[in-house]
Amino acid sequence: MYKRNRIAAAYRGQRRKNRAAQRLLHQRLHDHETSPGLQNLDAEGEVDNEGVDIAWFEVGNPNADVTVVFIHGYCLSSEAWCDQVEHLRSRSDVRSLLVDVRGHGMSSRVPAADCTIDDAADDVLAVILERLPKDGGRIVVVGHSLGGMIALNLIRRAPQDIFERISGALLISTSMRRFADKGVTRVLQSSIAEAFYSAIDRVPQKFNRLRFAVAQIAAPTIAAVVAGFPKMERLQFHTAMLLDTPLPSFVGYFDELTDHSEFEAQERLQKLQGQVVIGSMDIITPKSQSEAICEKWNNCELKVIDGSGHMVILEEPEQISEALDEIISAAAISNHQDSPA
Rank of each mutant, 00 (worst) to 15 (best):
G252W: 00
Q270V: 08
Q189S: 08
R209N: 01
H238S: 12
D244E: 12
Q216E: 15
P220V: 11
G147Q: 07
R211Q: 12
F254D: 14
L272W: 10
K271Q: 14
G252Q: 02
L188D: 11
L188V: 02
F250N: 06
V141A: 09
L257T: 07
R178D: 08
K231V: 10
L269K: 01
A240V: 05
E164I: 01
P159W: 00
R209I: 06
V140S: 02
D244F: 04
Q273H: 14
A223G: 13
H144I: 12
A240W: 00
R165I: 02
R156T: 07
A195W: 10
R165G: 02
R209S: 13
K271W: 05
G228I: 02
G137W: 12
S191L: 07
M232C: 01
K231A: 13
I222S: 01
L170K: 06
T174F: 01
G183A: 10
E264K: 09
A215R: 03
R138E: 01
P246E: 04
F263V: 13
G148M: 05
Q205F: 11
L152W: 06
I162V: 14
P230D: 12
V142L: 00
T239G: 04
L235R: 07
S198I: 04
S190Y: 09
S191G: 08
N153P: 14
R177C: 11
I172R: 03
L257R: 04
D201H: 11
Q189Y: 02
G147D: 08
A180Q: 06
L272R: 03
A151C: 03
F212R: 15
N153K: 09
I155K: 06
L269Q: 06
T245Q: 07
V187S: 14
T258I: 09
Q205E: 11
N153L: 01
G168H: 06
I162R: 08
S261R: 08
Q205T: 12
A219D: 08
I155G: 11
A223C: 13
A169I: 03
E256V: 00
S198C: 05
S175E: 09
G168T: 07
G228F: 03
D181R: 13
R202G: 07
A219I: 05
F207L: 15
Q236V: 01
L188G: 15
T221P: 01
G168I: 08
V141S: 02
N153T: 15
I192E: 14
E233H: 06
L247F: 00
L210N: 08
R211D: 05
D255Y: 03
A218W: 01
K231I: 09
S175Q: 11
P246C: 00
A227D: 13
T174K: 01
G168S: 05
R177L: 07
F229S: 15
G148Y: 01
F163I: 13
F163R: 15
I200A: 03
S173I: 05
A218H: 04
D201G: 01
Q270A: 07
S198R: 12
I150G: 12
E264C: 07
I155Q: 04
M176D: 12
F212S: 11
P204Y: 06
A169F: 02
